[in-house]
Write a protein that binds this DNA or RNA. Structure first.
Lengths: 159, 159
DNA sequence: TCTCCTTGGGCACACCGACGCGCATCTTCC
DNA sequence: GGAAGATGCGCGTCGGTGTGCCCAAGGAGA
């Protein structure tokens, strides 16, 4: 299935207003509401749209500190990776975790209230992860870019 | 404003189904639709809910490769930072960018179609960033955790 | 202890709008 | 020229949404 410019406009708009009605979207895209409804349903059925979700302001919850954590395991054996990964998904403060190439370790993104709170997280969540050889943390001083979708996806959809 | 368990349940549900109707949510939370409408509107007005957005399946767009890029500048002067940051926001493949503590450099998360595509991005986007002294890239082999909201936010809302 | 006031919830109703269907039209490709 | 896909219009039904009103619980103060 190939997406044309109108599809990309629909997607770009829905990434901003997920609750926009058919008629509302139809005006912005330049279609009738029924044609738009068909395209939107197709985009959902084909899997381009995974879900509609509310974005929370995490700073309202006091989570203003982002920490990047690099973790190296004692060994890169298969069961060491599995043991680590089954535990890391349970950490409530971890929002992202990648298995990285290069030095064969993991990179986590952790959200904390402040530095003291990260000390608690380090003690109660991170240090309990199995098979860990080394943990290295660096704090994000500022966030310059935070996009859910790279702008390259929408191509020339924006007029 | 203090959030009780019902508020957290509403937020947890909306992060999954942003298009859920008042009556639908009311059943899950255990409220009437009007009481729920009041709470939801309050959560929006207080800023807990920033937006409702559609989540796209980026793999459907061929973006299956995540790259972490560490960048060190020639100098940490104020105008060097400013020059870099005004340009990095224009890079269409960059989804996140942090100013980091420690070695005083930046960490970017870049989405690419594959390794060849990242070479193109490196050439056309990253190498044109100003005041850059060193660029170091590592590829994500696998994504273990990807949450928009840390589960710690919802606390004990999940029964 | 009684009463007032505030906060939050539920019920009922009415209005407005979205949604989905059917059909006619148009374009494009074979 | 025909067929298939996509669009637009109109309509009716359905559901959500918002409002008004009343009720229950809890706290404060006299």
């Amino acid at each position: 299935m190939a997406l044309d410019r109108k599809d990309l406009t629909i997607l770009a708009e829905l990434t901003t207003n997920a609750r926009a009605s058919h008629t509302e979207l139809a005006n912005k895209v330049g279609l009738s509401s029924t044609a738009l409804a068909r395209r939107q349903k197709a985009l959902e059925d084909e899997g381009y749209i995974q879900a509609y979700q509310a974005a929370l302001d995490l700073s309202q919850f006091g989570l203003t500190t982002t920490v990047l954590v690099r973790i190296a395991l004692e060994s890169q054996s298969d069961d060491a990776l599995k043991a680590f990964e089954t535990e890391v998904v349970k950490c409530p403060s971890v929002v992202r975790c990648f298995l990285m190439s290069g030095t064969d370790d993991y990179i986590l993104i952790v959200l904390a209230r402040d530095i003291q709170d990260f000390e608690r997280i380090h003690r109660t969540e991170l240090s309990r992860l199995p098979r860990v050889a080394r943990v290295q943390s660096s704090f994000a001083l500022r966030e310059i870019v935070n996009r859910a979708v790279p702008t390259v996806v929408f191509g020339e959809a924006k007029r």
